[in-house]
Amino acid sequence: MNDLELYQYALFLLSRRDYGRAELFARMKRRMYEKNDRIIDELLIERVLAKLDEQHFLDDDRVVSLLMQSYVRKGYGPLRIKQELRQKGFIEALIETHLENVEVDWFEKAIEVRTKKFGDDLPSDFKEKSKQVRYLQSRGFFGDMIYEQFKN
């Protein structure tokens, strides 16, 4: 694969959705492996990424912001959001900055997520309470956000 082919492939990917730099690097690396007789030229990929950066097609800050909004709408808590963004290859400092600046009351969000799934009534037995706690933990809420709801 040459510069132009790889650049066009990257533009094709970016035309469909936003990618972070690390995620796009991985996709381009996989494409090069498939199309280039299993030979990967990481310098070529870096050159193409630099060109995309110069043209403002890559912006990790914007992508993290958009993903953060999406994950909040889906009802994810801060722990889950952090995990999802780390898996996409974003740096910890960028993730932390966006989590600090997001305008969400996480306690209210946890209540909203629990209510949407289980209704307004608080559980009366231990088994049901445990089920709801596990659900909220899997959604990425901290323990204090979860247990605050069940205080009575």
Rank of each mutant, 00 (worst) to 15 (best):
M28Q: 07
S138I: 07
V48I: 15
G20L: 12
D18A: 10
Q149Y: 09
T97A: 13
D53R: 08
H98K: 13
I81G: 01
G119H: 12
Q149N: 09
S138V: 07
I146F: 07
E92A: 00
I40S: 13
G143A: 05
F141I: 04
L4C: 01
G20H: 13
V113R: 03
Q132A: 02
L13N: 09
D18T: 05
R86Q: 14
R30D: 12
R80M: 11
K35Y: 04
T115V: 06
N101G: 14
R114E: 08
L66Q: 14
Q137I: 02
G140N: 11
D18Q: 11
K74N: 15
K109R: 14
V72T: 14
I146C: 10
V63G: 07
K109L: 15
L44P: 01
K131N: 07
R86G: 00
E128D: 11
E54Y: 14
D59T: 08
E5V: 03
A93S: 12
D105G: 06
R21C: 03
L13Q: 13
I81P: 00
E92D: 05
G119M: 12
K35I: 02
L94C: 01
G143L: 06
R21V: 06
D3L: 12
E42V: 04
K109E: 15
R134W: 04
E108L: 12
L49R: 05
R38P: 00
Y7W: 12
F141K: 04
V64L: 04
M32T: 01
K35A: 09
R17F: 03
R16Q: 11
L66G: 09
E23C: 02
F90L: 04
A26Y: 09
L94A: 05
V102A: 06
D3W: 14
E34L: 08
E92F: 02
Y135N: 00
F107P: 04
D59N: 15
K131E: 08
E46W: 07
T97P: 00
R17Q: 14
A22K: 15
K127V: 13
K29D: 00
E108F: 04
R139H: 07
D41C: 07
Y147P: 00
E23I: 03
F12T: 13
R86Y: 13
R16V: 09
D3G: 09
S124H: 07
R21P: 02
E100L: 10
E23M: 05
K129H: 02
L67I: 07
M28I: 08
E84V: 11
M145H: 15
T97S: 14
V48M: 11
K88F: 01
R16W: 02
E46A: 07
K127C: 03
K82W: 07
L11R: 15
K129P: 00
R21L: 07
E112Y: 08
L79A: 03
A26S: 13
E103M: 11
M145P: 03
D60Q: 03
F150N: 09
